[in-house]
């Protein structure tokens, strides 16, 4: 057994200090040690994206990140996406547009979509489809996922515009 390594990281705004086996995958740290089971494992080969979380604000596949690599980092999972109560516009749009069925890919899909919208607040359909090429869904055929991301983008832009207006006033 290899030497355990101390790490400190923030997950959904909460600080943690842990000692972990170097080979521990970030996804297992989140699920098994921190009880954040909204992040899922679907493939092991970084194809399906069900394990997508944000690491320092960017989407990553947490099955292909070692927990030790997340030392000193900020991790956000589906459970912490809003930073509080209520639904994120992406969550609301996924619900409204029936962008999920079994729900297994959904947390990862939403986290990937959040990264996409941070990079591109007004993506075209094609940009959404390519932006989500790292996340597999077997249920929805993607049609409603694409629609939900577009709708959430519009909502986020409207909020942004509203916030700017408020500032001006």
């Amino acid at each position: 057994m290899s030497t355990r390594v101390p790490i400190r990281l923030s997950v959904n705004g909460r600080a943690h200090e842990l000692e972990v086996e170097p080979r521990l995958l970030l996804v297992h740290l989140l699920r098994d040690q921190l009880g954040l089971t909204g992040t899922h494992v679907g493939c092991d080969t970084s194809n399906c994206g069900a394990c997508t979380v944000h690491l320092d604000g960017e989407a990553v596949k947490s099955c292909t990140v070692l927990a030790v690599q997340a030392d000193a980092a900020e991790v956000t999972t589906i459970e912490g996406l809003t930073g509080g109560d209520g639904l994120h516009p992406l969550q609301a749009a996924f619900w409204e547009d029936h962008a999920l069925q079994c729900g297994y890919c959904t947390p990862g899909m939403i986290m990937a979509a959040a990264d996409l919208l941070a990079r591109n607040p007004d993506p075209s359909e094609e940009e959404i489809r390519h932006g989500l090429e790292g996340n597999l869904c077997r249920c929805t055929g993607y049609h409603n996922i694409v629609r939900a991301v577009r709708d959430a983008a519009a909502e986020l832009r409207a909020r942004e515009a509203g916030a700017r207006t408020t500032e001006v006033v």
Partner: peptide, 9 residues
Amino acid sequence: IADQQVRNR
């Protein structure tokens, strides 16, 4: 290259 998550790492 691959997908955005992979490109992020």
